[in-house]
């Protein structure tokens, strides 16, 4: 019973952290894009404009919620909920630090759902459900632009999930487990998967960009062509939920990439040099800092790429997914499999 309460507490903390991170990301995105574009960015609300996300959310909450005439109301309502729910629920398998050794000798794992033996599969499965939010939003809005956006996103997500899954398979072959904690444990001491799986990392990275609908793959919401894409007909906090889901997705994708390829919370040599024992509070805080640092690098990459590259066209996106990434992913599995078979 106590473990259930503990999980609920951890889940609540994770949810709040995710929402704060999403808000912080909105702020960072605006500041970094301003820096790239010779602008200043938000700097009026609070010190350095830090309260800007709060002001944005407040504005969205007070906006009128408009549902278009002839829209399919139940689906129109449920679509943003699916998007945000999926984006947030993936968080439970992510392990931002190892464990805390309690006085009675039990291990308190930091992850919400630690040692799930299908952790990675859970992430892949839930991120594919995320597409329903966008497709339903596009279809239920009764708007041609929304429909085109929804169709684009379904095609895009299905084709890039394959490449993503194949890249993950190769990483799992190296690590030998689907459990997030095990994957990180197998990479301890600087034996990060990125050194053994550079190609796999690249494929997973590109596929993650496509999965999270970020530029250069932001076709479902390509504003010059489709006005707002699938969320053209959304207003108020429903639109805000889509927005939040995009940033939460970015965060979880970066966290999964960190776990799979960058060794998660592992940082070689430094804990031993600093004399941090496993299971102690300083060690957990150190691991959290390492994890956050690695995720931040990836998040910066997400933002940097968005403000640098133009957008793909629909058919070019499909070409890249099916003709380049998929064969590369398959070749990566074969090569990894051969090496794993002969070396071990």
């Amino acid at each position: 019973m106590s473990s259930l309460v503990l999980t609920l507490i951890k889940g609540a903390i994770a949810l709040n952290v995710a929402l704060v991170v999403a808000a912080a990301l909105v702020y960072l995105e605006r500041r970094i894009s301003a820096w790239i574009q010779y602008r200043i960015g938000p700097n009026r609300v609070g010190p350095f404009g830090l309260l800007q996300p709060l002001a944005d959310v407040l504005k969205l909450y007070t906006k009128e919620d408009i549902v278009p005439y002839n829209a399919s109301k139940p689906f129109h309502r449920i679509a943003p909920i699916i998007s945000i729910a999926v984006a947030l629920s993936v968080l439970c398998v992510i392990a931002p630090a190892s464990y805390l050794l309690l006085d009675d000798g039990t291990k308190l794992f930091i992850a919400v759902a630690p040692n799930v033996n299908v952790g990675l599969l859970f992430y892949l499965a839930l991120s594919s459900i995320g597409v329903y939010g966008i497709v339903l939003a596009g279809w239920s809005s009764n708007n041609k632009y929304s429909l085109l956006g929804g169709l684009r996103s379904s095609a895009q997500m299905i084709s890039y999930e394959l490449a993503m899954g194949l890249a993950a398979v190769a990483a799992v072959m190296v690590s030998g487990s689907l459990d997030m904690n095990q994957i990180i444990a197998s990479q301890s001491g600087g034996r990060w998967n990125i050194w053994f799986q550079p190609l796999g990392f690249l494929i997973f990275l590109v596929a993650s960009f496509a999965e999270t609908n970020r530029a250069p793959f932001d076709l479902p919401e390509a504003e010059p062509e489709l006005v707002g894409g699938y969320h053209t007909e959304y207003s108020g906090m429903k639109f805000g939920l889509f927005y939040l889901a995009e940033y939460a997705n970015m965060f979880t994708a970066s966290a999964v990439m960190t776990t799979l390829y960058l060794g998660g919370y592992d940082m070689p040599f430094l804990p031993t040099l600093l004399g941090l024992q496993e299971g102690t509070l300083p060690r957990v805080l150190f691991e959290l800092a390492v994890f956050v640092g690695k995720v931040s690098v990836l998040l910066f990459l997400f933002i940097w790429v968005r403000w640098t590259l133009p957008r793909f066209r629909y058919d070019q996106l499909m070409n890249l997914g099916w003709r380049v990434l998929l064969p590369l992913g398959l070749a990566n599995i074969v090569i990894t499999g051969a090496i794993v078979f002969f070396v071990r």
Binding site: S33, I36, Q37, Y38, R39, A215, P216, D218, A222, P224, W307, T308, L309, P310, R311
Partner: peptide
């Protein structure tokens, strides 16, 4: 033109 194909930064430059 750059903005229309998605490179918003060039537009602001």
């Amino acid at each position: 033109t750059a903005m229309d194909v998605g490179a918003l930064t060039v537009f602001l430059w």
